[in-house]
Write a protein that binds this DNA or RNA. Structure first.
Length: 601
DNA sequence: CCCGTTGCGG
């Protein structure tokens, strides 16, 4: 048997240590045999401590070393980078330069990675220019890290400049460009990069494909997503959890839930992230029951739900309107996880949609650090409940912080006005949004304004506003106008809106129902028939609206023409009583169809 | 001369 040379044998001995104690024994052996004094194993020893996740011992060793070369410094820096202590990485980087140790490609690479993690472009730029001074402008690793740092910080155009200047491009650079474009909300360009790398004969791997799949998901391009999966299968591409999970997510985001579910079931190994993808996929597509079932099922496999799975479950809770369930999830989060900005926002949303504005507000007040999404959610909550004045009050409070109201804030504010009938406030703040806050009104803002005006009977003003739009209005805007015309019997403008909606062909059958009702009150029977015909031909029916009420933790739902509930008779009798009392109070109910702008999106 | 250092999922 041939033995390996000594250095290699020691190296493999170090690599064979899988835990802290065996590493400590090997370390002791090194000391006893005097090998440590040779110095060349010091870096490997530190690296080994980093590998068994023992930065404290690694640091201790590091501090005890008399003379420390680049490799030792690098090993220590990498150890901190792995443990995600980016600040310590930068501190050590600066210290080593101060002590006159010459950094190399690895040093710069890891230091730049730390900057990418902390989004510290200032320090990153400093390190980059230092790397230039040391002659690393053509180094693939350094270039790749700079590019990645820009991409991670949302500076994709700066990243592209670095990318184009790189003499040699490896797989990692291309990947960073793809993920960078995705992070910047430019999936089209992400796909373009992929095509370019294929044209240049670059090989791809799983990481690249995950990026491409994500781009398909962001584009909502079901066909492209399917073809990418097909390509992977044809090429017999190795499938790991990450790749499969990204496919599950893509299928869900492109509305192909059956495929998403089928692939998920076929996965041999699933982790928390895989479950999270399916749960939020179900929830986002309105399959609340399935989402909640999955949350229970994952626990039966011994997996602990994390925040993402729970946020999906919260969305599902608000869809079924179960305050009790939502509250229990809140309790779970408080007990076993750390409530973050995203889950906090989801909780606010859940509370308000489950009818408890007070719980939403209580949570809102309890959270100390609030981002603008958090504020927007609370403002929107007041809107849902028709409390326009409170929404405005909260908006004013938000302007007192350092946060800037964005287009979503104004959308929430305008929607709250439209639900409260605050016409003047709506017009005032719509104008101020444009002139003062320099936010160009989007489709949503117009839809809420049209809804607000049309509900108040100001159909002509609403139509005028639509005419002033720079772009061609979409279905939400026309549907809001149509609803207003329908309620107010404005046939002339209503017909324009109806024609536009038909031209644009909505997916939502509810809008067709509205159009058909609109023509019905105008007694235009030919049009009614033709709209009904479209509904028939597409083979879809309007999904019936229903309401839900929770009594003693049990959900009761009410759907049109459904008399299956065991207290159906009693409920009807009670409704009659209410109706009678309302009429005594001179209230005349409006029985025509009602359509909210935010239901059409 | 070798090594290792850069990019993935909800």
């Amino acid at each position: 048997m041939r033995l390996l040379p000594w250095p290699k044998r020691l190296r493999s001995l170090l690599l064979s240590c899988k835990d802290k104690s065996s590493l400590a024994k090997t370390h002791a052996l090194f000391i006893l045999t005097g090998l440590l004094t040779q110095g060349s194993f010091n870096a490997q020893l530190i690296a080994s401590y980093a590998r068994v996740i023992d930065v404290v011992s690694a640091r201790q060793l590091f501090e005890e070393m008399p003379q420390r070369g680049v490799d030792v410094w690098n090993a220590m820096i990498i150890a901190y980078c792995r443990k995600e202590y980016p600040d310590e990485v930068i501190r050590l980087y600066r210290q080593m330069i101060l002590e006159g140790v010459k950094p190399d490609s690895s040093t710069f690479t890891v230091a730049l990675k730390a900057c990418a993690r902390t989004f510290d472009l200032k320090t990153g730029g400093e390190i980059w220019s230092k790397a230039m001074d040391y002659g690393y402008e053509c180094d693939v690793f350094v270039g790749s890290s700079v590019l990645n740092m820009f991409a991670k910080c949302g500076k994709i155009d700066e990243a592209a400049v670095v990318f184009d200047k790189m003499p040699k491009k490896d797989l990692v650079c291309w990947t960073s460009m793809i993920t960078g474009f995705i992070k910047s909300g430019r999936p089209v360009e992400a796909v373009e990069i992929y095509r370019r790398m294929q044209k240049e004969g670059m090989k791809t791997d799983g990481v690249v494909m995950v990026g491409l799949i994500q781009a398909c998901a962001d584009l909502g391009d079901a066909k492209l997503g399917l073809s990418v999966h097909g390509y992977l299968i044809r090429r017999d591409h190795p499938m790991d959890v990450v790749l499969q999970t990204s496919l599950v997510d893509m299928y869900a985001k492109t509305g192909q839930l059956e495929l998403s579910c089928r692939l998920f079931n076929k996965m041999t190994y699933k982790n928390v992230i895989s479950w999270g993808a399916l749960i939020s996929g179900y929830a986002q597509n309105g399959f609340a029951r399935n989402a909640l079932e999955m949350l229970v099922e994952m626990q039966s496999y011994g997996l602990k739900p994390d925040l993402v799975s729970l946020v999906g479950a919260l969305l599902a809770s608000s869809q079924v309107g179960s305050l009790k369930l939502g509250k229990s999830i809140h309790g779970y989060i408080v007990r076993s996880l750390i409530l973050d900005q995203v889950s906090g926002t989801a909780l606010i949303d859940m509370y308000s949609k489950c009818g408890s504005l007070s719980c939403a507000r209580a949570l809102f007040d309890r959270i100390n650090t609030k981002d603008s999404i958090f504020w927007n959610a609370m403002i929107a909550s007041y809107g849902i409940h028709g409390h326009g004045k409170e929404a405005l009050a909260l908006f004013h409070k938000m302007t007192e912080t350092s946060l800037k109201p964005d287009h979503t804030t104004f959308a929430s504010l305008l929607s709250s006005f439209s639900h409260s009938g605050l016409v003047e406030e709506g017009q005032y703040w719509f104008n101020l949004m444009v002139s003062e806050y320099k936010i160009p009104p989007g489709e949503k803002h117009y839809a809420y304004m049209v809804d607000l005006l049309a509900r108040a009977g100001l159909v002509e003003e609403a139509y005028e506003l639509i005419s002033s739009m720079g772009t061609e209005p979409g279905i939400p805007v026309w549907a809001a106008l149509l609803a207003g015309c329908h309620n107010r019997g404005k046939l002339l403008i209503g017909e324009i809106a109806a024609k536009k909606v038909l031209e644009l062909r909505p997916h939502d059958m509810g809008v067709y129902a509205l159009i058909s009702n609109f023509y019905a009150i105008a007694k235009r029977w030919n049009e009614v028939a033709s709209v009904k015909n479209i509904m028939k031909k597409t083979g879809r029916k309007k999904v019936p609206g229903y309401s839900v009420v929770e009594v003693n933790g049990k959900l009761h739902s009410f759907v049109m023409e459904d008399n299956s509930h065991h207290q159906y008779k009693e409920t009807l009798q009670f409704l009659d009583k209410l109706d009678h009392e309302m009429r005594i109070m001179q209230h005349v109910p409006e029985t025509g169809p009602v359509l909210h702008a935010n239901q059409v999106e």
